[in-house]
């Protein structure tokens, strides 16, 4: 997966850089601080944009590829901004046996993104997880921290439909109140 930040304005980039600089305060310039720094910066920005990674590399005086290497190594770090809703497709042993990959394919097809990415409207981000501990409900997908059981492709459509209706209701209320 390559770092992509399409449509990010120069202003937004400068802001990410500024936020990163703020977050770096208080950290020593030793490279063993890399992971705590990455955690703090992601805590502020929600993800690790390119500008943040170059800023951190410069601060610690290490090659930027090494920052990128650590960020791509750990599942905890993300290269794309989080969506409003998070989708975590379980591919643990039980979910694998119960067709977790078919569920994943359904999510990929419906959201039109790959694991680790965010939809262009920033409504959903999707990723895979190894096991969430409720194997009796396999195949499981955790949607906004709520584990959904028996997520077959039709259930994927159902979950998305519910979000769509929720949004429609909200839009209606907003237009009525204004």
């Amino acid at each position: 997966m390559t770092q992509t930040d399409p449509g990010k304005t120069a202003e937004e980039k400068a802001q990410s850089r500024q936020e990163t600089k703020q977050a770096l305060k208080g950290f020593g310039r030793k490279k063993q601080n890399l992971i705590p720094i990455l955690q703090k910066v992601q805590g502020r920005l929600g993800y690790l944009p390119r500008e943040a990674m170059t800023e951190i590399a410069e601060y610690l005086n290490i090659p930027d590829i090494d920052v990128y290497g650590v960020v791509t190594f750990y599942n905890q770090f993300r290269l794309t901004p989080p969506g409003r809703h998070s989708v975590r497709v379980c591919l643990g042993t039980a979910c694998h046996m119960k067709g977790g990959y078919i569920t994943l394919d359904a999510w990929k097809r419906r959201l039109d993104i790959n694991p680790g990415e965010t939809t262009t409207d920033r409504e959903f981000d999707m990723d895979t997880v190894a096991c969430v501990g409720c194997c009796t409900k396999a195949p499981v997908t955790v949607v906004d921290n709520k584990p959904e059981g028996k997520v077959e492709p039709t259930r994927v459509d159902g979950i998305l439909l519910a979000f769509e209706q929720e949004r429609e209701v909200k839009d209606k209320e907003e237009s009525e109140s204004s």
Partner: peptide, 10 residues
């Protein structure tokens, strides 16, 4: 001075 190549992903 700064390396271009490195490892990424897992």
């Amino acid at each position: 001075e700064t390396a271009l190549l490195g490892f990424a992903h897992r």
